[in-house]
Nucleic acid binder design. Structure first.
Lengths: 330, 330
DNA sequence: GGCGTTTTGGAAACCGCTTTCCATAGAGAA
DNA sequence: TTCTCTATGGAAAGCGGTTTCCAAAACGCC
């Protein structure tokens, strides 16, 4: 077992002091070219790598960003992570990722763990209360939320209200009269989507009907078919909180012998990679997940490098992707 | 800006020395009940949290595990992470996750970054050479590979050879005569799958035909349809390296007007959550991704807590899930 | 050649916690 | 009452870097 090389040994090898080695390695202070060369030579000869924790302890900066996502099995969040990873790499930060497993207690644990290891956090799909999130945010250790707008906290979000208005209007334009909304967990995103749905229906003079998903995933969607089945009037269209639920729902409807879109049109929010590959292919408002990750990371790095008082809120827009699940040809 | 509380201030508040506080908090040495109570009271009054990096620097252990996965967009790896996270939490370790983005250079960077932050690493779907991986492994900082068997390195793998033998035999049993294998990247998993495929064909007296995916994902699968199209004889069945590729392939075949499974049967390896939801649903050898994550993490923790000389190799088995994409009813 | 600047590089304090070793006090034994 | 032993808690030396200051050397200039 080789003990790792320490800065002292590099210093001895180069015939200088540890502080000189540190300065050369970090470019903190110019040294005579000859000295720098000796240091670099010693470093590569000994294969020196600075001890990360000693460094962080000393400098107080880790050049790491924490990303906490709601559920790693949901493609929305993994795409977001991809975007975050890319921008972080460009700005030479390391991303430390954690999966909250849709569990607020676990989320808090992970946040604490990541807070201790990083310079700042991105919370994507948090299930914490607004107060808890506000309490977490500080100029020294900033937080950026994704999919959550809270006063005083920087965020990157989609204009979900408009997205929902558009998606619902699309169904109305298809001639649907009884449009049900399958609601997700009662957080910001769902609130906005439900509001847009209700407003669109009201403008068209239609009555809303909201049912709640047990969980915002495949299984929840499958279970929702039972709810729909019991609903009167039986809807001729469903707006789903996310596309995972829509996919589960469509699978379940198929086994029930309900035809999509002929008997029920289905539409959702998301950007599931297989939305276009299903039969019928799935209509959705495409959420730019990856872009959200990129923007959130960019914003966080910005906040770290020049702290600001006001909480910046970045807004993106979803795009309607009409597909077979909602196109009704009479 | 509140400065974080240090152990010294807790000590002062409790009227003891920092070493006493440390001992009470870590349970390193028994103290008089009254003293312990004073320390705990001071801790909660001041809201003290030990500085992680100081702690790690001092003890040399971080109680964190690094998990490097090939591609976070691939459900196989995210399921694996889920399993890893669960076991790590049970053993009170923190998982630090990194996405190698199928890029060996990036992978090495991430490994170095995680090596500095963790007590041990899990490499799932590594694209490094055997030599590089062996060089990374050491009893002090063990590595466990998933989906890769290398002499001297602990690993958790599926018996891919047998899995492939079974899957190919299944297609042969369906009466297929011209079975093509769509190969993935030339690493252990693909080698084993290809070997199983070849052996199954040979036993049946059939001729193998191997084509290579550009990438082992949706896009690669879509692009592969062109290769198939050009192949003579045109196959009546395809074994795909993974189910992402199979899904892409089936989508592409659909646009070409080739019927699955009537004209071409399709089968793959993996456990994509939508495999059963597609039309036609996808036959595959189900890889227990989550279980692999659990086992790898359990093994790694074991290795950390009682280091061993010999490199343990854990083996799991895949299960055939016959579905519509390969069931040919004449 | 003398003097004021720059360069160059080292000493030492510090980051915040753990841990070893040692001193003291109180309990129990004789 | 004295002595030994154990329970309790503190002092100080790390862990491995960074950074502030300061001294010495080298330089330019008159």
């Amino acid at each position: 077992m080789r003990k790792p090389v320490r800065i002292f040994e590099v210093a001895r090898e180069a015939g200088v002091s540890p502080s000189t080695v540190s300065k050369v390695l970090n470019g903190t202070q110019r040294m005579a070219a000859a000295t720098e060369a000796r240091v670099w030579k010693a470093v590569s000869k000994l294969g020196y790598h600075a001890n990360l924790h000693a460094q962080i302890l000393s400098t107080g900066r880790s050049r790491a960003l924490g990303v906490v996502i709601l559920d790693i099995l949901n493609p929305h969040f993994t795409a977001l992570v991809k975007g975050a990873g890319q921008v972080a790499a460009e700005r030479s930060y390391t991303v430390l990722l954690a999966d909250a497993e849709e569990n607020p207690r676990r989320e808090q644990e992970l946040i604490q763990s990541l807070k201790a290891r990083t310079d700042g956090l991105i919370l994507a799909g948090s299930r914490l209360s607004d107060e808890e999130i506000v309490a977490l945010h500080s100029p020294e250790q900033p937080i950026v939320t994704v999919g959550r707008r809270i006063a005083g906290v920087p965020s990157v979000t989609v204009d979900e209200y408009t997205a929902s208005l558009q998606l619902t209007s699309h169904l109305i334009a298809q001639g649907c009269k009884h449009i049900t909304y399958l609601a997700g967990p009662p957080f910001w995103v769902n609130q906005e989507r439900e509001r847009g749905y209700r407003d669109a229906l009201q403008q068209a003079g239609l009555a809303p009907q909201v049912l709640s998903l047990t969980t915002p995933d495949l299984l929840g969607g499958e279970q929702a078919s039972a709810l729909l089945w019991a609903a009167r009037p039986f809807p001729d269209a469903v707006v789903c909180y996310n596309d995972l639920a829509a996919i589960g729902l469509m699978a379940s409807l198929k086994t029930l012998g309900v035809k999509v879109p002929q008997e029920v049109a289905v539409a959702a929010f998301g950007n599931h990679p297989l939305a276009a590959h299903l039969s019928p292919s799935l209509t959705h408002m495409e959420i730019p997940s990856r872009k959200l990750g990129e923007l959130a990371t960019g914003l966080l790095v910005e906040l770290l490098e020049c702290p600001r008082e006001e909480a910046i809120q970045v807004i993106q827009y979803a795009v309607l992707r009409p597909r077979e699940s909602s196109i009704i040809r009479v």
